[in-house]
Design a protein around this nucleic acid. Sequence first.
DNA 1: GCCGTCGTAGACAGAGTTGTCTACCTTGAA
DNA 2: TTCAAGGTAGACAACTCTGTCTACGACGGC
Lengths: 189, 189
Amino acid sequence: MIAIASPVPPVRDSAARQRILLTAHDLFYRDGVRATGIDRVIAESGVTKATFYRHFPSKNDLVRAFLDYRHRRWMAWFVEALQRHGSAPTAIVPSLAEWFRGEGFRGCAFINSLGELAGSLPEVADITRCHKQDMTDAIAAVLPASRRRRQQADAVALAVDGAIIRAQFNQSPDAALSALARIVKSLLA
Amino acid sequence: MIAIASPVPPVRDSAARQRILLTAHDLFYRDGVRATGIDRVIAESGVTKATFYRHFPSKNDLVRAFLDYRHRRWMAWFVEALQRHGSAPTAIVPSLAEWFRGEGFRGCAFINSLGELAGSLPEVADITRCHKQDMTDAIAAVLPASRRRRQQADAVALAVDGAIIRAQFNQSPDAALSALARIVKSLLA
DNA sequence: GCCGTCGTAGACAGAGTTGTCTACCTTGAA
DNA sequence: TTCAAGGTAGACAACTCTGTCTACGACGGC
Protein backbone atom coordinates (compact mmCIF):
# COMPACT_ATOMS: atom_id res chain seq x y z
CA MET A 1 0.00 0.00 0.00
CA ILE A 2 1.51 3.26 -1.14
CA ALA A 3 -1.04 5.83 0.07
CA ILE A 4 0.55 9.10 -0.86
CA ALA A 5 -2.12 11.57 0.11
CA SER A 6 -4.63 11.30 2.92
CA PRO A 7 -7.38 8.89 1.80
CA VAL A 8 -9.99 10.75 3.85
CA PRO A 9 -11.30 13.73 1.94
CA PRO A 10 -13.42 15.76 4.37
CA VAL A 11 -17.01 15.92 3.26
CA ARG A 12 -17.74 19.59 3.00
CA ASP A 13 -21.22 19.51 1.58
CA SER A 14 -23.06 16.38 2.60
CA ALA A 15 -26.78 16.70 3.21
CA ALA A 16 -26.42 15.88 6.90
CA ARG A 17 -23.76 18.52 7.36
CA GLN A 18 -25.92 21.13 5.69
CA ARG A 19 -28.87 20.24 7.91
CA ILE A 20 -26.73 20.51 11.04
CA LEU A 21 -25.31 23.85 9.98
CA LEU A 22 -28.72 25.31 9.11
CA THR A 23 -30.23 24.15 12.38
CA ALA A 24 -27.29 25.45 14.37
CA HIS A 25 -27.54 28.78 12.62
CA ASP A 26 -31.19 29.24 13.54
CA LEU A 27 -30.74 28.12 17.15
CA PHE A 28 -27.47 29.95 17.78
CA TYR A 29 -28.82 33.17 16.36
CA ARG A 30 -32.15 32.99 18.14
CA ASP A 31 -31.16 31.69 21.57
CA GLY A 32 -27.43 32.38 21.73
CA VAL A 33 -24.50 30.00 21.39
CA ARG A 34 -24.00 29.07 25.02
CA ALA A 35 -27.70 28.67 25.63
CA THR A 36 -27.91 26.11 22.82
CA GLY A 37 -26.65 22.64 23.67
CA ILE A 38 -25.21 20.23 21.16
CA ASP A 39 -27.98 17.78 21.97
CA ARG A 40 -30.56 20.31 20.85
CA VAL A 41 -28.83 20.88 17.52
CA ILE A 42 -28.53 17.13 17.02
CA ALA A 43 -32.16 16.45 17.83
CA GLU A 44 -33.55 19.24 15.66
CA SER A 45 -31.38 18.51 12.66
CA GLY A 46 -32.42 14.87 12.72
CA VAL A 47 -28.98 13.30 12.79
CA THR A 48 -27.26 11.19 15.41
CA LYS A 49 -24.41 12.04 17.66
CA ALA A 50 -21.93 9.97 15.70
CA THR A 51 -22.83 11.78 12.50
CA PHE A 52 -22.58 15.15 14.17
CA TYR A 53 -19.16 14.50 15.63
CA ARG A 54 -17.92 13.13 12.33
CA HIS A 55 -18.52 16.54 10.76
CA PHE A 56 -17.79 18.77 13.73
CA PRO A 57 -15.24 17.31 16.13
CA SER A 58 -16.20 19.83 18.81
CA LYS A 59 -18.80 22.45 19.49
CA ASN A 60 -16.27 25.17 18.78
CA ASP A 61 -15.85 23.78 15.27
CA LEU A 62 -19.58 24.12 14.78
CA VAL A 63 -19.50 27.66 16.15
CA ARG A 64 -16.76 28.62 13.72
CA ALA A 65 -18.72 27.09 10.84
CA PHE A 66 -21.82 28.93 12.03
CA LEU A 67 -20.04 32.30 12.04
CA ASP A 68 -18.54 31.63 8.62
CA TYR A 69 -21.91 30.66 7.20
CA ARG A 70 -23.60 33.62 8.84
CA HIS A 71 -21.02 35.97 7.38
CA ARG A 72 -21.47 34.72 3.83
CA ARG A 73 -25.25 34.71 4.09
CA TRP A 74 -25.57 38.14 5.70
CA MET A 75 -23.11 39.80 3.34
CA ALA A 76 -24.90 38.38 0.30
CA TRP A 77 -28.17 39.78 1.60
CA PHE A 78 -26.66 43.17 2.48
CA VAL A 79 -24.95 43.75 -0.87
CA GLU A 80 -28.09 42.69 -2.68
CA ALA A 81 -30.29 44.98 -0.56
CA LEU A 82 -28.03 47.98 -1.13
CA GLN A 83 -28.20 47.42 -4.88
CA ARG A 84 -31.95 46.94 -4.77
CA HIS A 85 -32.30 50.30 -3.00
CA GLY A 86 -30.27 52.18 -5.56
CA SER A 87 -26.60 51.70 -4.62
CA ALA A 88 -26.51 55.21 -3.19
CA PRO A 89 -25.92 56.52 0.35
CA THR A 90 -29.71 56.69 0.68
CA ALA A 91 -29.86 52.90 0.24
CA ILE A 92 -28.30 52.23 3.64
CA VAL A 93 -31.20 53.09 5.95
CA PRO A 94 -33.99 51.33 4.00
CA SER A 95 -31.84 48.24 3.63
CA LEU A 96 -31.27 48.01 7.35
CA ALA A 97 -34.94 48.77 7.98
CA GLU A 98 -35.79 45.57 6.11
CA TRP A 99 -33.54 43.58 8.38
CA PHE A 100 -34.60 45.25 11.63
CA ARG A 101 -38.28 44.78 10.86
CA GLY A 102 -37.83 41.24 9.63
CA GLU A 103 -39.19 38.33 11.64
CA GLY A 104 -36.69 36.97 14.12
CA PHE A 105 -34.30 39.91 14.10
CA ARG A 106 -32.06 39.58 17.13
CA GLY A 107 -29.18 41.91 16.39
CA CYS A 108 -25.79 41.15 14.89
CA ALA A 109 -24.71 37.54 15.39
CA PHE A 110 -21.08 38.63 15.65
CA ILE A 111 -21.65 41.32 18.25
CA ASN A 112 -23.80 38.91 20.23
CA SER A 113 -21.14 36.22 20.07
CA LEU A 114 -18.42 38.66 21.03
CA GLY A 115 -19.82 39.06 24.51
CA GLU A 116 -20.55 35.46 25.28
CA LEU A 117 -17.64 33.66 23.61
CA ALA A 118 -14.65 35.85 24.35
CA GLY A 119 -13.45 33.33 26.89
CA SER A 120 -14.08 30.03 25.12
CA LEU A 121 -13.39 31.07 21.51
CA PRO A 122 -10.86 33.90 21.48
CA GLU A 123 -10.73 34.24 17.69
CA VAL A 124 -14.29 35.56 17.70
CA ALA A 125 -12.81 39.06 17.90
CA ASP A 126 -10.80 38.53 14.71
CA ILE A 127 -13.77 36.96 12.98
CA THR A 128 -15.93 39.93 13.96
CA ARG A 129 -13.27 42.35 12.76
CA CYS A 130 -13.21 40.66 9.33
CA HIS A 131 -16.99 40.67 9.16
CA LYS A 132 -17.21 44.37 10.00
CA GLN A 133 -14.45 45.16 7.54
CA ASP A 134 -16.46 43.55 4.75
CA MET A 135 -19.55 45.40 5.90
CA THR A 136 -17.61 48.65 5.82
CA ASP A 137 -16.39 47.89 2.30
CA ALA A 138 -19.96 47.30 1.15
CA ILE A 139 -20.94 50.64 2.66
CA ALA A 140 -17.99 52.41 1.05
CA ALA A 141 -19.11 51.06 -2.32
CA VAL A 142 -22.34 53.10 -2.19
CA LEU A 143 -20.72 56.33 -1.00
CA PRO A 144 -19.70 58.98 -3.52
CA ALA A 145 -16.08 58.74 -4.57
CA SER A 146 -13.98 61.28 -2.75
CA ARG A 147 -10.77 61.62 -0.83
CA ARG A 148 -12.60 61.05 2.45
CA ARG A 149 -14.67 58.05 1.36
CA ARG A 150 -12.72 55.55 3.50
CA GLN A 151 -13.12 57.66 6.63
CA GLN A 152 -16.77 58.34 5.90
CA ALA A 153 -17.42 54.63 5.45
CA ASP A 154 -15.76 53.89 8.79
CA ALA A 155 -17.94 56.45 10.53
CA VAL A 156 -21.11 55.23 8.84
CA ALA A 157 -20.29 51.62 9.69
CA LEU A 158 -19.75 52.57 13.32
CA ALA A 159 -23.13 54.25 13.37
CA VAL A 160 -24.71 51.21 11.71
CA ASP A 161 -23.44 49.06 14.57
CA GLY A 162 -24.99 51.48 17.02
CA ALA A 163 -28.27 51.31 15.13
CA ILE A 164 -28.24 47.51 15.18
CA ILE A 165 -27.82 47.54 18.96
CA ARG A 166 -30.59 50.03 19.52
CA ALA A 167 -32.95 48.21 17.18
CA GLN A 168 -32.25 45.11 19.25
CA PHE A 169 -33.44 46.47 22.59
CA ASN A 170 -35.84 49.18 21.46
CA GLN A 171 -38.71 47.02 20.18
CA SER A 172 -39.48 49.51 17.45
CA PRO A 173 -36.46 50.22 15.22
CA ASP A 174 -37.86 53.60 14.12
CA ALA A 175 -35.81 55.75 16.49
CA ALA A 176 -32.61 53.94 15.58
CA LEU A 177 -33.31 54.31 11.88
CA SER A 178 -34.05 58.02 12.01
CA ALA A 179 -31.00 58.70 14.18
CA LEU A 180 -28.88 56.73 11.73
CA ALA A 181 -30.36 58.65 8.81
CA ARG A 182 -29.45 61.90 10.54
CA ILE A 183 -25.87 60.77 11.04
CA VAL A 184 -25.42 59.61 7.46
CA LYS A 185 -26.85 62.85 6.11
CA SER A 186 -24.68 65.10 8.24
CA LEU A 187 -21.55 63.06 7.51
CA LEU A 188 -22.01 63.42 3.77
CA ALA A 189 -22.99 67.07 3.87
CA MET B 1 -48.40 37.57 68.68
CA ILE B 2 -49.56 40.45 66.56
CA ALA B 3 -46.89 40.61 63.89
CA ILE B 4 -48.08 43.37 61.65
CA ALA B 5 -45.18 43.68 59.27
CA SER B 6 -42.87 40.97 58.07
CA PRO B 7 -40.32 40.24 60.79
CA VAL B 8 -37.63 39.51 58.22
CA PRO B 9 -36.12 42.74 57.00
CA PRO B 10 -33.95 41.83 54.02
CA VAL B 11 -30.35 42.69 54.63
CA ARG B 12 -29.44 45.02 51.83
CA ASP B 13 -25.94 45.97 52.81
CA SER B 14 -24.26 43.22 54.78
CA ALA B 15 -20.54 42.76 54.22
CA ALA B 16 -21.02 39.30 52.74
CA ARG B 17 -23.61 40.59 50.28
CA GLN B 18 -21.30 43.37 49.16
CA ARG B 19 -18.46 40.92 48.65
CA ILE B 20 -20.66 38.63 46.57
CA LEU B 21 -21.91 41.51 44.43
CA LEU B 22 -18.43 42.91 43.84
CA THR B 23 -17.04 39.51 42.90
CA ALA B 24 -19.98 38.77 40.63
CA HIS B 25 -19.54 42.12 38.94
CA ASP B 26 -15.91 41.48 38.11
CA LEU B 27 -16.48 37.93 36.92
CA PHE B 28 -19.68 38.61 34.99
CA TYR B 29 -18.16 41.59 33.24
CA ARG B 30 -14.89 39.89 32.44
CA ASP B 31 -16.02 36.39 31.47
CA GLY B 32 -19.72 36.81 30.74
CA VAL B 33 -22.74 35.84 32.79
CA ARG B 34 -23.36 32.38 31.41
CA ALA B 35 -19.70 31.48 31.47
CA THR B 36 -19.52 32.28 35.18
CA GLY B 37 -20.94 29.64 37.48
CA ILE B 38 -22.43 30.33 40.86
CA ASP B 39 -19.78 28.12 42.44
CA ARG B 40 -17.08 30.37 41.07
CA VAL B 41 -18.71 33.48 42.52
CA ILE B 42 -19.14 31.73 45.86
CA ALA B 43 -15.56 30.52 46.01
CA GLU B 44 -14.01 33.85 45.03
CA SER B 45 -16.14 35.94 47.33
CA GLY B 46 -15.24 33.73 50.27
CA VAL B 47 -18.75 32.89 51.42
CA THR B 48 -20.62 29.63 51.54
CA LYS B 49 -23.50 28.41 49.50
CA ALA B 50 -26.01 28.91 52.29
CA THR B 51 -24.93 32.54 52.70
CA PHE B 52 -25.07 33.15 49.00
CA TYR B 53 -28.55 31.74 48.60
CA ARG B 54 -29.78 33.67 51.62
CA HIS B 55 -29.01 36.91 49.79
CA PHE B 56 -29.72 35.85 46.24
CA PRO B 57 -32.39 33.16 45.97
CA SER B 58 -31.41 32.42 42.38
CA LYS B 59 -28.70 33.27 39.90
CA ASN B 60 -31.11 35.54 38.06
CA ASP B 61 -31.50 37.61 41.22
CA LEU B 62 -27.75 38.02 41.30
CA VAL B 63 -27.70 38.98 37.63
CA ARG B 64 -30.34 41.64 38.21
CA ALA B 65 -28.38 42.99 41.17
CA PHE B 66 -25.24 42.96 39.06
CA LEU B 67 -26.88 44.99 36.28
CA ASP B 68 -28.32 47.45 38.77
CA TYR B 69 -24.96 47.90 40.47
CA ARG B 70 -23.17 48.19 37.15
CA HIS B 71 -25.62 50.87 36.04
CA ARG B 72 -25.13 53.01 39.13
CA ARG B 73 -21.38 52.60 39.08
CA TRP B 74 -20.94 53.29 35.36
CA MET B 75 -23.27 56.28 35.34
CA ALA B 76 -21.47 57.84 38.29
CA TRP B 77 -18.18 57.45 36.47
CA PHE B 78 -19.55 58.77 33.16
CA VAL B 79 -21.15 61.89 34.62
CA GLU B 80 -18.01 62.63 36.60
CA ALA B 81 -15.76 62.12 33.56
CA LEU B 82 -17.87 64.43 31.39
CA GLN B 83 -17.64 67.14 34.04
CA ARG B 84 -13.92 66.62 34.44
CA HIS B 85 -13.45 67.11 30.70
CA GLY B 86 -15.34 70.35 30.62
CA SER B 87 -19.04 69.50 30.37
CA ALA B 88 -19.02 70.37 26.67
CA PRO B 89 -19.61 68.28 23.54
CA THR B 90 -15.85 67.92 23.30
CA ALA B 91 -15.85 66.09 26.63
CA ILE B 92 -17.50 63.00 25.17
CA VAL B 93 -14.63 61.49 23.22
CA PRO B 94 -11.89 61.93 25.84
CA SER B 95 -14.18 60.54 28.52
CA LEU B 96 -14.82 57.40 26.51
CA ALA B 97 -11.15 57.18 25.62
CA GLU B 98 -10.40 56.79 29.33
CA TRP B 99 -12.80 53.90 29.57
CA PHE B 100 -11.73 52.18 26.35
CA ARG B 101 -8.07 52.35 27.27
CA GLY B 102 -8.65 51.32 30.85
CA GLU B 103 -7.48 47.94 32.07
CA GLY B 104 -10.09 45.25 31.67
CA PHE B 105 -12.34 47.08 29.24
CA ARG B 106 -14.66 44.54 27.68
CA GLY B 107 -17.41 46.61 26.16
CA CYS B 108 -20.80 47.54 27.56
CA ALA B 109 -22.05 45.10 30.18
CA PHE B 110 -25.63 45.68 29.06
CA ILE B 111 -25.01 45.10 25.38
CA ASN B 112 -23.01 41.99 26.22
CA SER B 113 -25.79 40.68 28.46
CA LEU B 114 -28.41 41.43 25.85
CA GLY B 115 -27.11 38.78 23.52
CA GLU B 116 -26.54 36.02 26.02
CA LEU B 117 -29.48 36.47 28.39
CA ALA B 118 -32.40 37.27 26.10
CA GLY B 119 -33.78 33.81 26.65
CA SER B 120 -33.25 33.30 30.37
CA LEU B 121 -33.79 36.87 31.62
CA PRO B 122 -36.20 38.66 29.29
CA GLU B 123 -36.21 41.94 31.23
CA VAL B 124 -32.60 42.54 30.20
CA ALA B 125 -33.94 44.48 27.21
CA ASP B 126 -35.89 46.85 29.46
CA ILE B 127 -32.94 47.22 31.81
CA THR B 128 -30.68 48.04 28.87
CA ARG B 129 -33.20 50.56 27.57
CA CYS B 130 -33.25 52.36 30.91
CA HIS B 131 -29.48 52.34 31.10
CA LYS B 132 -29.10 53.77 27.62
CA GLN B 133 -31.77 56.37 28.33
CA ASP B 134 -29.77 57.61 31.30
CA MET B 135 -26.62 57.61 29.21
CA THR B 136 -28.40 59.64 26.56
CA ASP B 137 -29.57 62.12 29.20
CA ALA B 138 -26.02 62.55 30.42
CA ILE B 139 -24.91 63.21 26.87
CA ALA B 140 -27.74 65.69 26.29
CA ALA B 141 -26.60 67.60 29.38
CA VAL B 142 -23.30 68.52 27.71
CA LEU B 143 -24.79 69.50 24.35
CA PRO B 144 -25.62 73.14 23.64
CA ALA B 145 -29.23 74.04 24.38
CA SER B 146 -31.27 74.13 21.20
CA ARG B 147 -34.50 72.91 19.73
CA ARG B 148 -32.77 69.84 18.34
CA ARG B 149 -30.81 68.86 21.45
CA ARG B 150 -32.91 65.77 22.17
CA GLN B 151 -32.50 64.42 18.66
CA GLN B 152 -28.82 65.24 18.62
CA ALA B 153 -28.32 63.42 21.91
CA ASP B 154 -30.09 60.35 20.53
CA ALA B 155 -27.84 60.32 17.49
CA VAL B 156 -24.68 60.84 19.54
CA ALA B 157 -25.70 58.09 21.96
CA LEU B 158 -26.27 55.72 19.07
CA ALA B 159 -22.81 56.50 17.75
CA VAL B 160 -21.33 56.01 21.22
CA ASP B 161 -22.77 52.49 21.27
CA GLY B 162 -21.18 51.84 17.92
CA ALA B 163 -17.86 53.13 19.23
CA ILE B 164 -18.07 50.87 22.28
CA ILE B 165 -18.57 47.85 20.07
CA ARG B 166 -15.69 48.69 17.77
CA ALA B 167 -13.37 49.45 20.67
CA GLN B 168 -14.26 46.00 21.97
CA PHE B 169 -13.08 44.02 18.95
CA ASN B 170 -10.56 46.40 17.45
CA GLN B 171 -7.76 46.05 20.02
CA SER B 172 -6.81 49.70 19.61
CA PRO B 173 -9.74 52.06 20.26
CA ASP B 174 -8.17 54.84 18.19
CA ALA B 175 -10.16 54.25 15.02
CA ALA B 176 -13.43 54.08 16.94
CA LEU B 177 -12.62 57.28 18.82
CA SER B 178 -11.72 59.29 15.74
CA ALA B 179 -14.78 58.06 13.84
CA LEU B 180 -16.93 59.02 16.82
CA ALA B 181 -15.31 62.44 17.00
CA ARG B 182 -16.08 62.95 13.33
CA ILE B 183 -19.72 62.05 13.86
CA VAL B 184 -20.14 64.32 16.89
CA LYS B 185 -18.53 67.22 15.08
CA SER B 186 -20.65 66.89 11.96
CA LEU B 187 -23.86 66.45 13.94
CA LEU B 188 -23.30 69.69 15.85
CA ALA B 189 -22.14 71.71 12.86
C1' DG C 1 -30.00 35.20 78.97
C1' DC C 2 -32.68 33.99 75.02
C1' DC C 3 -33.64 33.98 70.41
C1' DG C 4 -33.34 35.31 65.80
C1' DT C 5 -30.16 36.69 62.21
C1' DC C 6 -26.06 36.04 59.83
C1' DG C 7 -22.42 33.33 59.05
C1' DT C 8 -19.32 28.77 58.17
C1' DA C 9 -18.81 24.05 56.31
C1' DG C 10 -19.93 20.80 53.13
C1' DA C 11 -22.78 16.82 51.47
C1' DC C 12 -26.17 15.97 48.11
C1' DA C 13 -29.73 15.89 44.40
C1' DG C 14 -31.17 16.44 39.74
C1' DA C 15 -30.53 18.10 35.52
C1' DG C 16 -27.74 19.38 31.62
C1' DT C 17 -23.17 19.71 29.37
C1' DT C 18 -19.68 17.83 25.84
C1' DG C 19 -17.79 14.05 23.97
C1' DT C 20 -16.79 8.66 23.29
C1' DC C 21 -17.98 4.17 22.11
C1' DT C 22 -20.06 -0.11 20.18
C1' DA C 23 -22.94 -2.26 16.75
C1' DC C 24 -25.23 -2.32 12.61
C1' DC C 25 -27.10 -0.64 7.92
C1' DT C 26 -26.67 1.43 3.07
C1' DT C 27 -24.53 2.84 -1.02
C1' DG C 28 -21.20 3.34 -4.57
C1' DA C 29 -16.70 2.52 -6.53
C1' DA C 30 -12.59 -0.40 -7.32
C1' DT D 1 -17.74 -8.83 -4.60
C1' DT D 2 -15.54 -6.50 -1.47
C1' DC D 3 -14.65 -2.61 1.20
C1' DA D 4 -14.70 1.91 2.98
C1' DA D 5 -17.37 6.08 3.85
C1' DG D 6 -21.26 7.97 5.69
C1' DG D 7 -25.27 7.23 8.23
C1' DT D 8 -28.61 5.29 12.19
C1' DA D 9 -29.35 4.17 17.05
C1' DG D 10 -28.41 4.76 21.58
C1' DA D 11 -25.71 3.67 25.86
C1' DC D 12 -22.37 5.78 28.63
C1' DA D 13 -18.65 8.56 30.94
C1' DA D 14 -17.11 12.60 33.13
C1' DC D 15 -18.05 16.88 34.29
C1' DT D 16 -20.53 21.20 35.50
C1' DC D 17 -24.58 23.60 36.59
C1' DT D 18 -28.15 25.40 39.94
C1' DG D 19 -30.24 24.80 44.04
C1' DT D 20 -31.43 22.27 48.75
C1' DC D 21 -30.32 20.49 53.01
C1' DT D 22 -28.43 19.56 57.75
C1' DA D 23 -25.52 20.94 61.57
C1' DC D 24 -23.21 24.21 64.00
C1' DG D 25 -20.89 28.84 65.60
C1' DA D 26 -20.98 33.97 66.65
C1' DC D 27 -23.15 38.17 67.71
C1' DG D 28 -26.56 41.67 69.11
C1' DG D 29 -30.95 43.49 70.70
C1' DC D 30 -34.94 42.60 73.56
